[in-house]
């Protein structure tokens, strides 16, 4: 059963990777990274069960908790052109 789950997750990882390679816009790639993160969480969990040592779920927890920080950084990057600002600042007279 977990073999089937592993193969299924790996196959969908490959499909998502194709989307990341094709991705006409950068947002497709960001989304691909996002889905890839979820799939890695699941793959790590399933692999733990497959090898009969499901104690490695801490790793899945890390990804589940902090994998979205990158996406928020992307939003800041595009919305404000800078990671530090909270509102768009026009360029100074220069």
């Amino acid at each position: 059963m977990f073999v089937a789950a592993t193969i299924g997750i790996l196959a969908s990882m490959a499909i998502v990777l194709v989307r990341a390679l094709l991705g006409p816009t950068v947002y497709d790639r960001v989304m691909a990274v996002n889905i890839f993160g979820t799939k890695t969480v699941l793959l790590i969990a399933v692999l733990g069960f497959l090898t009969d040592r499901p104690e490695f779920l801490d790793l899945a927890l890390v990804y589940a908790l902090i994998n979205f920080i990158g996406t928020i950084a992307v939003l800041k990057f595009f919305a404000f052109g800078d990671l530090g600002l909270t509102r768009r600042v026009e360029r100074g007279p220069e």
Binding site: T25, Y27, N34, F68, I72, V74
Partner: peptide
Amino acid sequence: TSPISTHALARAAIVSGL
């Protein structure tokens, strides 16, 4: 986290004029 990141991503795409 997944709705937050989806929201952020859609927002970024809209803001950039897609």
